[in-house]
Design a protein around this nucleic acid. Structure first.
Lengths: 348, 348
DNA sequence: CTGAAAGCGCTTACAG
DNA sequence: CTGAAAGCGCTTACAG
């Protein structure tokens, strides 16, 4: 069957070395392929390692190399609610792909307390459970992030952090993307009185997408018509925004939601009030993490390449860990408008 | 600001000990709260550790304690496609919650190759990157799993593995659940000619849900009417199953899909052929990982408590790692039928 | 060229 | 009672 020893006790380098009759130092070099060790010994050691099912101890290596061989994803408690399951799974997929290539582990660090977001990061890196970390979705108000970046520990942020110019970040151009999808409703669907339901305005994503919306409205000479309703990325916020608008008798001919979850909540609210989408009110969302494809109507959205962002962030992180010079501080990936039925592009 | 030293070099026990003027052994005991160390020294050491921002080295501890302080989730490459993003995120959430309570890390191990599923697991545990692992969604045909369980390494399987009686597993009663949701269509909606679109039949989940369907049909005296179409849990399989049925002119008055993804694919195919759901054909799915709530109509389904399963699996794993005797080999969590519009229970 | 010590950071068993 | 060595598993710098 398998060659691995099924016994519980773990096989160390010493066991391998003893089987061949060399020191563990020699065995180590042999497995590393050092030319210092004769080819014959090298092969004997490799065979012995194979036969015994030897796998190097992560702890032994980490201690000796001062390198954990792992990268961490920090998921602050709050952001799990804000960004949702699918976002983080895309991020984990991107990280895992890159980590696998380099034979590194991925450790997941979720925060329990509200306040301890950075403490969580700090613990992971200072305990050297991971050689660096990817942090995503931090709030603008989170001042600790600044100390973190200044500390010089390897960290890559996913998102946009204009107030942290020295941080290495990977993201998209939310302003341009927000403008583009707004222009879509204006130019392709003849909307003139648009509402924007924002994300949380203590997150740069929320701010930028709103600014993109306002820029598009201004450029179209419709700045006066622009209505802003503050949301928080939750489905419930989208629903509440629509209900409030309708209750107040607001006049509008389209809604730009800052993400798909809110667009879905809004869609349900509109449908519940017998306002057809897109016939009565065309709407658009943002993200395309999965939800927007499966609703009826499908939600027109800006595809945010979360997995690719995470993959690139991982590469940047590896560079930081390895001490590569001149790692680009900012990388932006392209987004792409995905036209579906909610704006009127596709048949319902 | 923070008390932590922002310098890159990490603080070791030796640094803490030096600051107080004791040996690192004494500092270790002081931090552990040993009564061997005078209260005064204990406090001084704790203060010094605090001031320096000392965090114990994971590698040092792991090597000394022969314990990684981490548990792993193994995600075989194939199962990512089979079970989808949301399932694994539920599992990770459940694991993280339990791991946080015990101050353990969660490491994520995704397999690259097709064949190397167990090798991946093996590497993680043998390298002692993790003290044990949770493995989910393994195929019945994966004979390596048997060796794995026999090896005595701490592992908990999520799912049902009747051919591995010695394995510690956490799951649901898929047969009973499959029967229950089938009975719902029979008893509540008067269906008599039901189709079942199965999951992959090399996974126990696929087999069990099918058997539950057949049992319900038999008990209702409708065994002759039961039609089985083999699927694989993918949306595309659900779509293809419906198209084939319609093309062949099959006669049926309801469909039991073995999961929600297939139900969604089937729903789209029915809608595309102008067959209203539930008016033309009532359908039900299985899982309730997120999708079934957001479709139109919402899909009636059996709620599978993935997060709770993962939490319980984690607890079982901790017990195995700690050598607790008589860890229950099998735990089953209750499922719950969630009635939505696709069967006709709720208004569209 | 090669053998074997030293040391990464930690904690406990041992010596005094 | 307390000081300090030993050793977890590994790899490299050093001694011979």
């Amino acid at each position: 069957m398998t060659k691995t020893d099924p016994s519980r006790a773990s096989v160390t380098l010493k066991d391998v070395a003893a089987l061949v009759g060399v020191t563990s130092a020699a065995a180590s070099m042999a497995l590393a392929g050092s030319s210092r060790i004769s080819q014959k010994t090298r092969e004997a050691v490799k065979k012995a390692a194979d036969d015994l099912g030897y796998v190097p101890s992560a702890a032994g290596r980490a201690l000796r190399n001062q390198r954990a061989g792992a990268i961490a994803l920090i998921v602050p408690n709050t952001s799990k609610h804000v960004f949702g399951h699918s976002y983080f799974m895309h991020v984990l997929t991107g990280m895992s792909t890159e980590a696998n290539i380099r034979d590194l582990q991925v450790v997941l660090s979720t925060t329990t307390e509200q306040a301890g977001d950075v403490a969580a990061y700090d613990r992971v890196v200072r305990s050297r459970s991971a050689d660096g970390a990817i942090v995503t979705s931090a709030a603008v108000t989170d001042s600790n992030l600044e100390d973190l970046v200044a500390s010089g520990l390897p960290v890559v942020l996913i998102g946009n952090f204009p107030y942290l110019p020295r941080a290495v970040t990977v993201g998209i151009d939310d302003v341009a993307a927000g403008r583009e999808i707004t222009e879509h409703l204006l130019a392709q669907h003849g909307c003139t009185r648009l509402v924007h339901v924002t994300g949380p305005l203590d997150h740069q994503t929320g701010i930028d997408r709103r600014d993109g919306f306002l820029a598009a409205m201004d450029e179209a000479g419709l700045g006066d018509q622009a209505v802003i309703v503050e949301g928080d990325f939750s489905e419930e916020a989208g629903r509440a925004a629509v209900e409030t608008l309708l209750d107040e008798g607001a006049v509008f001919d389209g809604i730009v939601f800052a993400n798909d979850d809110m667009a879905f909540g809004g869609l349900e609210a509109l449908t519940a009030r017998d306002i057809p989408v897109p016939g009565g009110v065309p709407i658009v969302g943002f993200d395309d993490f999965g939800l927007s494809r499966v609703t009826t109507p499908g939600i027109t959205t800006m595809h945010t390449p979360a997995e690719e962002m995470a993959a690139l962030a991982s590469q940047r992180l590896f560079d930081l860990i390895e001490g590569v010079e001149n790692v680009p501080a900012r990388s932006e990936l392209p987004v792409r408008l995905v036209a579906r039925a909610s704006c009127g592009c596709l048949p319902g």
